[in-house]
Design a protein around this nucleic acid. Sequence first.
DNA 1: TCCTGTATGTTATGTTATAACATAACTCAA
DNA 2: TTGAGTTATGTTATAACATAACATACAGGA
Lengths: 162, 162
Amino acid sequence: MSDSVSDAGAAQASEHDHQRCVEDALAGAEGLCADSGTRFTELRRRVLQEVWRGHDAVKAYDILERLGEPHRTAKPPSVYRALQFLQEQGLVHRLESLNAFVGCAEPGRTHQGQFLICHGCGQVREIHADAVSEAVVRSAREAGFQVQRQMVEVLGTCERCQ
Amino acid sequence: MSDSVSDAGAAQASEHDHQRCVEDALAGAEGLCADSGTRFTELRRRVLQEVWRGHDAVKAYDILERLGEPHRTAKPPSVYRALQFLQEQGLVHRLESLNAFVGCAEPGRTHQGQFLICHGCGQVREIHADAVSEAVVRSAREAGFQVQRQMVEVLGTCERCQ
DNA sequence: TCCTGTATGTTATGTTATAACATAACTCAA
DNA sequence: TTGAGTTATGTTATAACATAACATACAGGA
């Protein structure tokens, strides 16, 4: 089951320099943590690297399995804690409908993203459509509701898979 | 933990005739199943009744515990199967961010709902804001993405809890 | 060096969900 | 009314996802 992951990663790799993509993400994370005075430890780096394995959502237990040395004996809490840290730093997002995680496309910016999840190839694209987040806030307000966080996950077919 | 459920149910009960609310839901379900030629069995009725215990989200295992006779020995698959059936009939919705279920406010209508989840009282309100679902479809289309299903779950504070 | 706070390790368990196969109960037609 | 086909539920086992609670290690400043 966990291999839709590597397949999608591979598919993506043929289109862009994914190596580079990952390196950028890691370098960005390093900078961001330096700025915020938090520690981008070896484990956190490694977990983030696994999240960026491809552009599809990655499961916590898949990450756990793939951590090599010196984390081979890591247990679930280590991974979940690293993921929580990365979420707090805005470096990864959790997809509620998949119980899985994706790297944030634009860390450093505070934003309300929406996630387009292709069930053909498994790839997840993050967009930031103000029209959506504003419509949510407006509609909620009409119901007397004050928004703190919105989760918008869209299941469908990406351009390539149509 | 499962008692935020009954609390919220009670709070709601003081404002409207919840007994009636449940009865309407069950009667509606019965009609809808009759129309669609599906069987609204005792178990399914009972599960739906538990989902309608209040206006907050209900967990599968809480339902399981509360099924009385003659379902006292039911196991998880029975509940999950009933819930799946009810979802297929559009009688309940699953809230992905809570791993929990709510009764559908307007079964019979095909729609893309949004869910306002109050973390004060736990109540969940379903709205159908075309502005939201249309913005989602438009924004996705701009990304070349064809939408099949959208999940919009909004966490915040309801009018009463502000 | 020692103190403090933060990160990770470790053990155990809680929570959510489904696969796979067995049995029962309904439906309809002969 | 009975038996074949279908749908629903029971049953057993386990998979998949997640965290509580406490122990240890490690970084950085006084």
